[in-house]
Design a protein around this nucleic acid. Structure first.
Lengths: 341, 341
DNA sequence: TTCGGGCCCCAAATCGTTTTGCTAGAGTAC
DNA sequence: GTACTCTAGCAAAACGATTTGGGGCCCGAA
């Protein structure tokens, strides 16, 4: 079959506001006004215009509009990896919050790399995003945003940022971790250990745990505090080392669910009963927490709420309803008890 | 603290190509040419211009550029729900494939609703997306794209679409399901059942399974073919009904992993040994498949590859390297054997 | 009759690029 | 000196909307 008739000059030019205007016998100005409602036009003219619009199948060109109005009605969300359920849910929360106001979302995966964070930051600025939510790990604050006159609002998730227009929404990691520790203590576990995140990360989770131990008058030997790299495998290895101790723990708080699942793996491997022989608590409450066996007791990290409050904060600034200095909202991280502790 | 000095007219106007030009003592045209390289400019002029650019911190305005060139360097991906790991991974595959070519991705969640599919389709057209990948469930083909002269390339994932510029990438559900069925038969299971998707959905998976049973000379009693709604709970209920049969199955193929996990739930509940008493096979190979206990034998649905081939197809059309009629690439779905069968 | 004031609508400038001719000048060849 | 070809740069017209300062027209009041 041949591609098409060779002479297909016939492709109808895109229909613009000018076509509508000429068909309706009015000026482009008037068409614009019936569309935007920024000035009143008589009912009869409005009808004529509307008819012309639907006859011609006119659709406004957002790019042209954006050039003039300096608004893209697009938000950028910068995350380490959309494949990570936490960020996927966060993104969804954001999208849902702003969808009704006509904002779409543009997603960037940084893999936690600074160069990519920076590149995407510039990319979305140049694209004219109306707002940015920055959730790229804990490294956000290290980004240099340059000294330019950014009047684009920015929200940081999980971290602060020194910038006048920057709001922050942060989960209350410390309180959540404290609740987890207190829960284990109250359940009567004697030797409670923790698998932390890598050095310099997740300090609040460790702090919350320590505070809980202090509150319960429990000593926590240095040997019972080990580190993992957030992955299932890392959790597995860390747990292995804990269980190899002369006096292994009878309960372990893991700084995230993936590592907790790794810890569960070694419990299975060792033939231990969870939670009778060994209790395990995670952090995040990802989907997998209910799929693991036994189901994982964990601290809920409110990804969806984080995304949607970010959206609300952004909406507030973009609409001009709020224009003060940076706000910070902290989200509670409740303990959810299931089978593993 | 007061908002700012009251008279802050001082906000420096955005620096445009004209500023650069005047600072470098050349015309905007020349600046544009050094940036795009579309015409040659002398080395000395180029240097002057580049210096002016970095002195002023000029950054090109993508919106204005897009208006003129009719390119947004943005791709839209329309999925039911980014929260679903399958679509998250697909989106990531797409993003990775096109990132190097300077394309970004705009994500739309339809929740499988036709009205939203349609709305987002128009939205991304009006936004001037350079390409669209449509992965919104199995309903894509029912969308009416209108008769407009869309010269925007579209890729459908998992389904075809009657449109000259539309390519399709579809996973080989049938072959994958057949492999799963054949595997169970070869392992010597006697009564093999299946939990299908809802009516009218996932027909290929059922077909593959039936074909495998025919090939292995196994009869499959109608009672052993039940339906679920893709969810864990649905799988749980379907499995319940299967096990309540006078002659329950000793192996079950589930049309997706979530339902397989639901099936595992009832095995646990009934105290059955998996796979000794009961074998279970899923479809998709989501992350959770390796978290379930025992780990799930399943058929791999290549989400990442689907996304990245979609990206490649798009790149081919957008660059003009290909402009023929709709292509279809089918992706193999290999069986991955783990603990549950 | 004139003036003031609503009501509708229009012309033209603008947003920040890219893309065409076009031209001035410099270098050859005859 | 003429004719021709390059080279390097410029002016101006797009691209498709929004925005703003007017300006007819009509009506009622002075």
């Amino acid at each position: 079959m041949l591609p098409d008739s060779p002479d297909e000059r016939s492709r109808p030019a895109r229909v613009t506001i000018a076509h509508v205007a000429s068909r309706a016998g009015v000026s482009p100005t008037t068409v614009s006004h019936v569309l935007s409602g920024k000035r009143v036009v008589s009912a009869s003219t409005r009808r004529t215009v509307m008819d012309a619009i639907s006859d011609l199948g006119y659709r406004p060109n957002y790019v042209a509009r954006g050039l003039r109005t300096r608004q893209s009605h697009m938000l950028a969300v910068v995350v380490p990896d959309i494949t990570n359920p936490f960020y996927a849910v966060l993104t969804r929360g954001l999208a849902d919050a702003v969808d009704a106001s006509g904002y779409g979302t543009y997603v960037c995966n940084t893999d936690g790399r600074h160069d990519r964070e920076r590149k995407f930051f510039e990319d979305v600025m140049d694209r004219g995003a109306d707002g940015i939510v920055f959730a790229s790990g804990e490294t956000a604050s290290e980004i240099t945003f340059g000294q330019a006159d950014y009047d684009t609002p920015i929200i940081c998730i999980g971290d602060h940022l020194e910038h006048p227009l920057c709001d922050a929404v942060i989960p209350d990691d410390e309180a959540g971790s404290q609740a987890a520790g207190a829960f284990l203590a109250k359940r009567g576990y004697r030797r409670i250990g923790m698998i932390q995140g890598p050095p310099k990360y997740g300090a609040e989770r460790t702090a919350g745990f320590r505070s809980a131990m202090r509150g319960a008058k429990r000593k926590v030997p240095a040997k019972l505090l080990v580190r993992g790299d957030w992955t299932r495998k890392g959790g597995y290895q860390a747990m292995k080392s804990l269980m190899a101790l002369p006096e292994p723990p009878d309960a372990v708080f893991c700084a995230n669910d993936l590592m907790a699942i790794g810890a569960l793996d070694v419990a299975h491997e060792l033939g231990l009963e969870v939670p009778a022989d060994l209790a395990i608590v995670g952090f995040d409450d990802v989907d997998a927490a209910t799929i693991a066996w036994p189901t994982l007791t964990t601290v809920r990290n409110p990804a969806y709420e984080a995304g949607s409050t970010a959206g609300d904060l952004l909406l507030g600034r973009m609409s001009g309803r709020y224009s003060g200095e940076g706000r910070t909202v902290v989200l509670p991280c409740p303990l959810v008890t299931r089978g593993s502790a």
